[in-house]
Design a binder for these strands. Structure first.
Lengths: 318, 318
DNA sequence: CTGAAAGCGCTTACAG
DNA sequence: CTGAAAGCGCTTACAG
């Protein structure tokens, strides 16, 4: 910039004015500056500008694992909104490790990102308090953080499981299992809540064994249908039941989208949501804060929808 | 930092020394500075430091669409290597739009990223020349750029198609189709090259109709097996052939991994590669440049492997 | 319409 | 072992 000023025979400030399109420059002077700019191949150093300005126009998105589809699609939603606002996006993965989350987050804060969108790891987030006080906005996605209140964008897992189980009940199933592994995880807990609500509403009793199923245990279980709490569990269930649904010909509803679900045997009903919507919602919350909103914490819930393949589904065997 | 210096009663430089762990500070002075740092909740502004230092310790990864699995998994590979080097990662998607690629790339350059990993759009990349001269390293992935020489990390699509077709030939197929759409796209061209080589090597003639198949045309085609050039085409083929392989009971080999490929009917053989490997390789090339390598352009090829489900496959019908 | 000065938060030489 | 000065590349007040 100094070089440009020298070459054009003007002051630094004038170059700055031209570069920023500020008024108050003779067309003549402006074009002289422009010439110098192109001749020297000058490009304004954004970092330097932002050092002076205070804002960096950057966001950080801290995912669990950027390689999984949910994280990536969510990030794409964040990116879209960031782009509309002229923001650039930093990304990183925690692999669910709290130490890694903290290290990543703090290094983004040291870079002075304006805001952070975080899939929280199980650890506490106290380390974030001082950063938030220092003016960095933070929104949590997919799970609420444990030790902290903040804006959140979540998925309506409760409603998703309820819809899935209601679908099975409508088909005549009465003994329905829940295959979900770790019930202490936030998502499993939500799904189990939805399952329980649907069963209770229909007046159906729930045997404890039905909610502590394992994939291998499916074949010897009393259930005629099963709700799977994740794509992985759905895959395991299908593997156990085999391509024809097994001797049990069990109905399967899974949480989470599958490629080519319609080509799977046994045919599968799926309850899924659009992760990009979560990302967009989170980014909107974040920009709300950056644009001055300072009210109480907000919470957005993205719904899940059921994609049924009714005609090919298994009715209860008995 | 100024505040810290004031509070600890030392000069700016001394604070800098403590923060950077440089030698030449009395333990006593150091602890006084440390106290001031924690009391004031001071965190060094990385951007300011880097403005002085010249390097930003950031990379940019410009994908086609961050939401698709290939792009995301590739990015994860880049991230891993970046992390090892203490670099942070910017990301963005082009949606294959050259204008968007240019806009994204230039704004990353304005932020003075040290390097760029780009999935090139079809457009030219002349706009990058001056940036590269200015010292920004660039590596292209998945496709070579059209108008420019640079380091590249690619997938061995040629070998992938050859392996897939050889697999079909070994099963006895002689009339094998290639379902690939736009033959002008880089990947399709490479795959078609591998297909042709395998057929030629086996002394098998290729009817022009076999390489210009459409998904709907499959049922009336003379081929007994088909190689699909992408996950999408594989899906379309399976959709057309139906869950039992259709009246044609055609053998299908597809390029690109599928969820639950083993649960698909008709059973599917897949040739796939690990996108994270491409990302890692690209990042290594990039850091090679940043670490001073200035030799001729390098090209890395990541191999693809065939995952056969031999026992369940369809032999040729005639 | 244009410019000289001070400053953003840090580091790099150089002195003491 | 410690510090005062100058500078990274830009912008923000303020004058003229």
């Amino acid at each position: 910039m100094k070089d440009v000023a020298l070459r054009a025979g003007v002051a630094l400030k004038t170059v700055s004015r031209v570069v920023n399109g500020e008024p108050g420059v003779t067309p003549e002077t402006a074009s002289r500056v422009q010439d110098a700019i192109t001749e020297l191949g000058f490009r304004r150093n954004e970092s330097a500008r932002l050092l002076r300005t205070g804002r960096t126009a950057t966001l950080g998105y801290i995912a669990e694992n950027w390689a999984d589809r949910e994280s990536a699609a969510l990030g794409r939603g964040v990116e879209e909104v960031a782009r509309e606002h002229g923001f650039l996006l930093f990304t990183g993965s925690t692999d669910s490790d709290p130490a890694r989350e903290e290290q990543l987050t703090l290094s983004l804060c040291a870079r002075r990102v304006d805001g952070l969108i975080i899939v929280p790891t199980p650890g506490d987030h106290d380390y974030l308090r001082s950063e938030i006080e220092a003016g960095i906005a933070a929104v949590f996605v997919l799970r609420p953080p444990v030790t902290m209140d903040a804006d959140t964008a979540l998925v309506d897992e409760h409603g998703a499981a309820r819809a899935g189980v209601e679908h099975l009940i409508a088909q005549g199933h009465r003994r329905i299992g829940f295959l979900g592994g770790d019930h202490s995880a936030y998502r499993s807990r939500q799904l189990l809540g939805g399952y329980s609500e649907a069963m209770a509403k229909a007046g159906l009793p729930v045997d404890e064994a039905w909610t502590s199923l394992t994939p291998e245990g499916l074949l010897n279980s009393a259930v005629t249908a099963v709700f799977c709490a994740s794509r992985d569990y759905t895959a395991l269930a299908l593997r156990t039941l085999g391509p024809t649904g097994g001797s049990r010909r069990m109905a399967v509803v899974g949480f989470g989208a599958f490629d080519m679900a319609e080509h799977l045997a046994p045919r599968l009903t799926v309850v899924s949501y659009d992760p990009a919507e979560v990302g967009r919602a989170a980014a909107e919350l974040l920009f709300g804060r950056l644009d001055g909103y300072s009210g109480p914490d907000r919470k957005v819930q993205i719904p899940a929808t059921l994609v049924a393949r009714g005609s090919a589904e298994f009715p209860p065997a008995d």
